[in-house]
Computed example of a mutant assay.
Amino acid sequence: MVLSLLFYVFIVLVCFQILYFLIVFTKISFHKALSTPIKELSISVIVCAKNEEENLKNFLPSILEQNYANFEVVLINDASHDDSLLVMEDFANKYKNIKIVNVKNNEAFWANKKYALTLGIKASKHPYLLFIDADCKPRSNNWIREMSSQFQSGKNIVLGYGAYTKIKNSLLNKLIRFETMLTAMQYFSWAKIGIPYMGVGRNLAYTKNTFFEASGFMSHMHIKSGDDDLFINQIANSENTAISLSPDSFTISTPKTSFKDWINQKKRHITTANHYKTNHKFILAFYYLSQLGFWLLSILLLILLFKWEIVLTLFLLRILIQYVVFFGASKKLDEKDIIFFLPFFDFFLVAFQLTIFISNLISKPRHWK
């Protein structure tokens, strides 16, 4: 009786998963970018750095040498105790479009990145803001052009893709990139559907007016993380949000190289998601629970050989459809090399996220350096 009930639950979960892949993720897999005439807008590129001396040296040139006429780069030194400020000043002596905002710790907003970003945004002179992290670089010298082109249709927010550097023969690197790709598939797809819920600060744009009309980060200033996803969760809607899937609009970041560092990073991200709007949390939680249930019931029913022919057929059907849909998305996001390992990564990520959730119940994660 119990096995029969679990069997029918398994069928429902498989059907839900397949429908989710075909209805939601195909929004990205089969996305076609519309060509729009590009009019150069006045852009302020915002870079917030805390103890990023080496990254600034390595990545700032790729931002400063963009193929774009009218832009400034606002460099925010967030109370660094290394030579980040000196590096910024050295670049400012060479490039006239740099503005430095030197932030000292404030007792009311101690070590809060949102406070530093707010000061940088206030200091910016242009109406359009484009954000990138200090440990990132644009994939091409047309990054500003491609991201800003999405404002042409009257949108106030542009969600971009923040990829990670590919490291050969590294399983951890492939796992990180798979999780990053899946996250992007989620927020891009739901934005296309008309329910945008997050963006990533290493490649994100919105207007200055949008920031101030929402009173900036004030509604969640007490939460140390979420300067990107919580802000987008607060202000984005079906009318004001665009996405950019042009490869030239991507940014590339340096990935974590140890499981410990990656786990700490994901603990922070998952904690922030707890503050999303209720409907967004429901969507994400339901998808994850369907993933968890699918893998647990697949393994259980196959081990017990309960109607194993049907279970195996449905299992393989679901994997096949996932391969087709994810392969389309991987081409859009230039992550094709990780698709071969799809079932393994899919299972691992479900187990990994469950472990992180339990870990967060036991101890609170650390935030912004």
Rank of each mutant, 00 (worst) to 15 (best):
K277V: 06
K277D: 07
K277S: 08
K277N: 11
N279C: 02
N279E: 14
H280W: 01
H280E: 03
H280K: 02
H280D: 09
K281A: 08
K281S: 10
K281Q: 15
F282Y: 10
F282V: 14
F282S: 09
F282R: 08
F282K: 11
I283C: 03
I283A: 09
I283P: 00
I283F: 11
L284H: 05
L284F: 06
A285N: 13
A285I: 04
F286H: 08
F286T: 15
F286Q: 08
F286Y: 11
F286G: 03
F286V: 08
Y287F: 14
Y287N: 15
Y287G: 02
Y287T: 12
Y287D: 13
Y288E: 10
Y288A: 12
L289V: 14
L289K: 10
L289I: 15
L289Y: 15
S290G: 13
Q291K: 10
Q291P: 05
Q291V: 05
Q291A: 09
L292W: 14
L292Q: 11
L292K: 08
G293I: 04
G293H: 05
G293R: 04
G293Y: 09
G293E: 05
G293Q: 08
W295L: 11
W295F: 15
W295T: 08
W295P: 04
L296D: 07
L296V: 13
L296F: 12
L297H: 01
L297W: 04
L297Y: 01
L297A: 03
L297C: 00
S298A: 06
S298V: 02
S298H: 03
S298M: 03
I299T: 11
I299K: 06
I299Y: 11
L301G: 00
L301N: 00
L301V: 00
L302Q: 03
L302I: 09
L302D: 03
I303S: 11
I303E: 10
L304S: 12
L305C: 14
L305N: 15
L305D: 14
L305T: 14
F306N: 02
F306V: 01
F306S: 01
F306M: 00
K307R: 15
W308V: 05
W308G: 12
W308L: 05
W308R: 13
